[in-house]
Amino acid sequence: MATVELTFSALPAHVRTARLVATAIARRTGVQESLLDEVRLAVGEACSRAVEAHRAHCPGEPIRIELRDDSGRFEVTVSDQAPSDEIKQEQPLDLGMLSDSFMSNFGIAVITGLADDVQVFPSPKGTNIRMSWPAAVGV
């Protein structure tokens, strides 16, 4: 098992960097090319959500990403330290309810639709989003 860890300040500009790193490691780990767009988007969504949560609750704290090659899976865990209520997986499609600064739950819905396997662990001490995709070879 090989692990890459990345921490970054809660700034929107760093989300792109996190996406690029995750995509590069996914490719190296053997994730199919056809899945790399999904990895890029899902990791970006998770990081965007974490950045927004930190900016609201703890802007000075870093966000952490673990990228792991484990038993034929490429696994990504995005961890924030912002207190979280229970996350709802589904949103009613009511235009009047949608705001400009999109709800973080909507990002979760996107991740759920993209990742092969997703687990969300919200808690008062922060949220961990773990997602994984099949990988062909080890790092």
Partner: peptide, 15 residues
Amino acid sequence: FLDSTGLGVLVGGLK
């Protein structure tokens, strides 16, 4: 590339 933040902006524009 488009993420949910971008979707939110488009929805905001539509509103």
